[in-house]
Design a protein around this nucleic acid. Structure first.
Lengths: 340, 340
DNA sequence: TTTTGACTTGTTAGCGCTCACAATTCTACG
DNA sequence: CGTAGAATTGTGAGCGCTAACAAGTCAAAA
């Protein structure tokens, strides 16, 4: 910077002013300095800047399971939004969101002086641990629910589940079964709740719940159980004609199990998923599901976080994004209620 | 730091020495200082440190398409390895790897004083652009091929394709068709090459090439063409009994197209993929594929990069990792060659 | 006891930047 | 033409840390 100042024949402070876009610099000086900067290929040292301003302009991201479609897309949205607004992001990927792992991640980020943290931790325990941890900076959660007082953004999982369930009911099914995700995931619970609410409101019977762990394998196992129920039409499983699976990956497993049991989708059993992963359109058959705009979710979280950091009091500390129902072949309308 | 020094009754320099693990500090002093640090919850300011040492301990990652399984896993590996070695990573996600986008990303990272960059850019043009760009720091590529003089790590795509092809030939197929990825992707070309080599070595006919763009949709379209060939057994398509698809997502599309055309997998046409995405095991039918250890790839790239940065002359500037063949139902052995 | 050398600790000067303030120049009006 | 007020530029200090050197301490050898 001193070099630039010398060559341009001004003080280092003037160079600094040009770089920061300070208004009180004459057009002539600004042009001259800009040209020298260009010519010398000078770049302002961010460490020195951070030291002097006490602002690192760095944000941290803590995420679990970033190899999955949802978190990965969210991450991309977060990064992009932060970059646009002049911040550096650094992500820490956790295998499991234990209290210690979270604390360690936060410690790591804090060591680098991050000014804020976006936590993509959709598990109830993780959010609780996060709230318990005294953070050295503002924290915003993505899909963290709003039970605790952490600000955050989330998708209206409940609404999504209702949309799916109502769609299936409207397609002529007497009721809808549900394969839920792990009970400690907030998303999982919200989807289950939405499903149950929609059934009750429609006056439909609420069948027993099946659970998986989001993996295709667990969906497959749940699917085998479901297939068994269909085949034994007496008792509680009677009338199993539609299933809402809590995510697309498990739905893939369910579809396989049903197929192996000789059941057709959607003729014998309609199946719907949740997430709209890119593969969903090519499942056997193409899957009805709920599209989540993860990237927007990520962007929104950055907006919220920067509102906090940069002092704009965010009136709404909680943003909820609406989902979109994508209807495909796996829930094609049944012209005649079966079994009559 | 001054506070810590005051409370511990030593100079700030001694505190610095304790923090840096300098050997010449008496055990007693070290213990005392450590305790005060603990007590005050002191954390060394990384900006000041970077300013004084002229080392930011920050690495940049440039990646395309991070929402896909491969890049996302690689990213996770990179991050983890860097964190273990005391570096901060910052990722920039690009939609498309154009020269300008790459330059901008590099500029962004350079502005933050990154000491090295890992580029996950598997496209030929991207690597070329990267090589042309004069980087402000060492750059290591992942899946960037070794045609240019950028150091990097990659998986032996060629070998993977050979394994698949040889497996299919060994299963009793006269030859193997191939649905390739986009021609400007290095991975795509290497897989095509491996397939072709294996066929030639086995003395099998090399059928015409089909191409997709990695998406399930493009696989579906390719699958429709393939199905047409099977149905019209005169001419060049005769004997189409096995297909090697260049990635699992396209394979999903191919499977759907074949199924819709009334062809059974593997009885009528065997299908194999590449990548081993988590869903592959639950495809209809479970997909034979090549498993890639993306996380190790990411870790290896960090190893290579730090070798460069920290001055250890890396003898091998190019690492190649071996893939693993995963055999599943989609290529079940055919007991009798069909059509005889 | 004295001296030597190794070990331990303290002192000073920046790293490259921004902030607050001082100094200078320019503009406009009486 | 003089001067207030604004606009522009320069000066010095300091952000929190480490590198290099200086100084002090202690043990063992002479």
């Amino acid at each position: 910077m001193t070099d630039v100042a010398r060559v341009a024949g001004v003080s280092h402070q003037t160079v600094s002013r040009v770089l920061s876009g300070h208004p009180n610099v004459s057009a002539k000086t600004r042009a001259a300095v800009t040209q020298v900067i260009e010519q010398l290929g000078y770049r302002r040292n961010s460490a020195a800047r951070a030291l002097a301003t006490r602002r690192t302009h760095t944000l941290g991201v803590i995420a679990v399971n970033t190899t999955l479609h949802g978190p990965a897309s969210t991450l991309a949205g977060v990064q992009e939004a932060a970059r646009e607004r002049g911040y550096l992001t650094s992500a820490v990927t956790l295998r499991t969101a234990t209290q210690t792992a979270l604390a360690e991640a936060m410690h790591h980020l804090a060591g680098w002086g991050v000014e804020g943290i976006v936590a993509v931790t959709p598990q109830r325990d993780a959010v609780r641990a996060l709230a318990a941890l005294e953070a050295p900076c503002p924290v915003v959660t993505v899909e963290g629910g709003h039970t605790l007082d952490l600000p955050g953004v989330s998708l209206d999982q409940n609404l999504g589940a209702r949309l799916i369930t109502e769609h299936l009911l409207a397609s002529g099914h007497a009721t809808v079964w549900h394969v839920a995700g792990p009970p400690d995931w907030l998303e999982s619970e919200a989807r289950t709740q939405g499903w149950e609410d929609a059934l009750r409101e429609a006056g439909a019977e609420v069948p027993p719940l099946l659970r998986g762990d989001w993996s295709p394998l667990s969906g497959y196992q749940a699917g085998q159980q479901l297939a068994g129920r269909v085949r034994a039409p007496r008792g509680r499983g009677a009338g199993l004609t539609a299933v809402f699976v809590a995510n697309d990956q498990m739905a893939l497993g369910v579809l396989r199990a049903l197929r192996e049991a000789g059941l057709r989708t959607p003729e014998d059993v309609a199946v719907a998923g949740f997430d709209d992963i890119p593969e969903a359109e090519f499942f056997p058959p193409p899957l009805t599901t709920i599209r989540q705009d993860f990237a927007s979710l990520g962007r929104a979280s950055i907006g919220l976080l920067l509102d906090h950091i940069e002092g704009r009091t965010a009136e709404s500390t909680h943003l909820v994004v609406a989902p979109e129902l994508i209807v495909r072949a796996s829930t094609a309308r049944r012209s005649l209620p079966s079994g009559e």
